[in-house]
Amino acid sequence: MTEPLLKVEGLKKYFPIRKGVLSRVSGYVKAVDDVSFFVNKGETLGIVGESGCGKSTTGRMLMRLLEPTEGKVVFDGKELTNISNDDMRKARREIQMVFQDPYASLNPRHTIEKILEEPLIVHGLGDAKSRKKKVRELLEIVGLSSYHAKRYPHQFSGGQRQRIGIARALMTNPKLIIADEPVSALDVSIQSQVLNLMQDLQKDLQLTYIFIAHDLGVVRHISDRVGVMYLGKMVEITESELLYDKPLHPYTQALLSAVPVPDPNFVRDQILIKGDIPSPSNPPSGCTFHTRCPFKMDVCTTVVPKLEEAEPGHFVACHLYGERAALINR
């Protein structure tokens, strides 16, 4: 087995809650709490979860747009979490990001050419002429026309802007692209176009994606492997097909049962989870899902389940599986 392109170990992000005149720290919001995973070269890892589960925070920490509270990020054999800010800035050439809101992520006062040229200028790549040439090449690659270069962002539709966002991420020939909900702001008809573009680019340019989304259908379409997050923790991570065919974690099962099926006669066997997502500033003890879990056991309220391999290549953090389950079942 080859060395993964990106390895994340025990990543944590605690946001302090400050109170009072002296802004004393009165607690922490555990946005991301001990998340570990890896991404192989050339594959797409999907990360799904409800809003506020920490998936975007995780994505931002990988690029150190947010400083992790704890944990290690190893990219291409190089640890990113202990290098200086300036080295990190340079390392961003290899890791790029596509943002959720194509209306907000492009500077309204810059032309498309200026927006796309900027990554090259920042990293000192090429001269003025070759930069302009590359801008036009990439516009064509992402399905726009080179004569669009002199236009401003407000003259494009959402889907076109997202293509520009993707082109910008590709300018420096990165190895890894972190896509933070890249299609959730787009119309459904445009979503598939952008997804297909991303898949084509992956094939042509040997890209690796981390694809963050809340739409399970979208993630299934594009991902090789999928990780499910709940309240700052990775609860299940495995091959995409395995996850969709045989979800193990009760939360994943509930999520998948909520995906609409395009068949009017389909009688769904929906698993309803009760209650709201608990506050990450005061997460439940033990397994954070125990407050809403239909299969809750006594052990769940006290012991935090570890992410363990329940089946080959299928990792899940739940007391129903693994060693402890074997003990209980006996």
């Binding site: 943002f99 992520s105 500077n107 900027e118």
Partner: peptide
């Protein structure tokens, strides 16, 4: 707080450049 500032950081831009090329003109 605009996303194009985050994206400027993500492409590896320096603070000073972000200030003068993105924040000030806007």
């Amino acid at each position: 707080e605009e996303e194009y500032i985050t994206s400027a950081k993500a492409i590896g831009m320096r603070d000073v450049r972000i200030l003068f090329s993105h924040i000030l003109p806007n």
